[in-house]
Design a protein around this nucleic acid. Structure first.
Lengths: 265, 265
DNA sequence: CAGTGGTCTAGACCACACT
DNA sequence: GTGTGGTCTAGACCACTGC
């Protein structure tokens, strides 16, 4: 199968090869899944950067020595996972948080009246940005060892002058070496876009755990609410390619004039 | 195109027909989307009931006079929307909330330690079930007129003996005529499964609005927490086919040993 | 106009479930 | 074995973008 000039690794298998290969746990994976994996590796390796055009379906089909339809199915799945953006007539682009369309993709807080657009962008105020040794709980979530370097960032988001979110962001020190409060406040646009352009880290998916909690003294003052006021606690873990955790974010949201909106399918 | 014996409506169009039809707003819709619409209509009309097998791809291809691939793409989309369940070697089934796999599909509350399965099913206790005239706010959400008949149902869900959710469920009186507390408590299994089998109403998607609120006296007593305790307020609107709202559910969740889990893509 | 992704077809074969 | 959905191919044509 794999021949001269072929960038195909020898590990690509066909269904029939698999069937004859082993009687136990065939672990059959369709061709398009393998192609998807190869494209994924190129994305991860940075062969094409966020926002860039990837090769056309025909080119990829030639490169991998499969039909266009097979490449298409692979790219379709990557598109469904928001790793890639297809645009008819133009090509397929590596997805990015910088695009107007998908900015603040992970922020589910919306105003009770009107929509996010009419409200305008949040005013951001950084409280601090420190380099620390990772506490045990943070280390566990970020797949680090306790004591490894991490960045801790605290900030407030305000909508139309009303402080609404206070959050604490933990990032692994290695990939984010050189991140400072100054660079952050200088940057216009979503933080996740900065992560892409400055540190080559693209957040691909995230998980959130929500709770109702009472405001502690510090948060109450920052959010200008009484101590004990119910706040929505949102703990988000964000992942890059390969399910590698890259951010832990603990936020407290005021929900008196906003709500957390979720679609269930 | 549409000929004798053909169940195809004359409204099916090809790309070229559309192109020549109108210079303004061609509103081109691919064939597979039209097929999807036709299958959807059959689902809505109850031609195949939840849990039942729908005709094979080949049969549908013959019925609609298109290729198997076109039907496949239509069914794929229906599957992605959880309207239909494909099972290799067996066929395609109308999705249902009664299946073990997807039970409590819309419930995002999970225990902090262990998983939902280890915790076991919730103990349900119905507080009341009344037929009322719809208040204005309820009517608006359910697309009814104020004063139309609605059912109001209040209940408590407890996990391992600890009351955790108190909720108020509003249903349109028409489709749910005959629903009583007795029928509900007699039914084992998810409420949405009962809605399917007894009333032919299948919930397809839902939207939730979350807030942190302070426990009022009544809820506090039911959930055995102090008045003022922060609780997670979850307001869910559920829809059947055609984006028709069919349920409004207002719940208060204790989040001291559970949390609301959300995946962001 | 050429190049891209999107649709549609027809046919072959594979994996899986039931009989 | 038969029938189902799932994969893969090859080719034709359509819709959209930009030159």
């Amino acid at each position: 199968m794999a021949t001269l000039l072929s960038p195909l690794p020898d590990t690509i298998t066909t269904a029939s090869e698999v069937a004859g290969a082993s009687a136990i746990a065939p672990a059959f994976s369709p061709l398009y899944q393998q192609i998807k994996g190869l494209i994924l590796q190129s994305l991860l390796a940075g062969e094409w950067k966020p926002g860039e055009l990837i090769p056309s379906e025909m080119e990829l089909a030639a490169r991998f020595r499969v039909s266009q339809g097979t490449v298409r199915k692979a790219i379709d799945e990557l598109g469904a996972e928001n790793l890639v953006m297809r645009r008819q007539g133009k090509g397929t682009f590596v997805a990015t948080h910088a695009e107007q369309q998908v900015q603040y993709r992970f922020l589910r807080l919306t105003p009770d009246h009107g929509d996010t657009r009419s409200e305008g962008p949040a005013e951001r105020q950084i409280i601090n940005c420190r380099r620390l040794r990772a506490p045990a709980d943070i280390a566990r979530v970020l797949a680090l060892r306790a004591g490894d370097a991490v960045l801790q960032l605290r900030r407030i988001l305000a909508f139309q002058g009303a402080p609404t979110i206070v959050e604490e962001i933990w990032l692994p020190g290695g990939p984010f070496k050189g991140l400072t409060a100054d660079r952050l406040s200088a940057y216009r646009g979503p933080m996740y876009a900065l992560f892409e352009t400055e540190f080559g880290v693209r957040m691909v998916r995230a998980e959130e755990k929500l709770r109702a909690v009472a405001a502690d003294a510090a948060s109450a003052e920052l959010l200008r609410v009484p101590v004990g006021e119910p706040l929505l606690s949102v703990e988000r873990t964000s992942y890059t390619y390969n399910d590698l955790p890259m951010e832990l974010r603990r936020g407290l949201y005021r929900t008196d004039s906003h709500h957390y909106k979720n679609k269930l399918n």
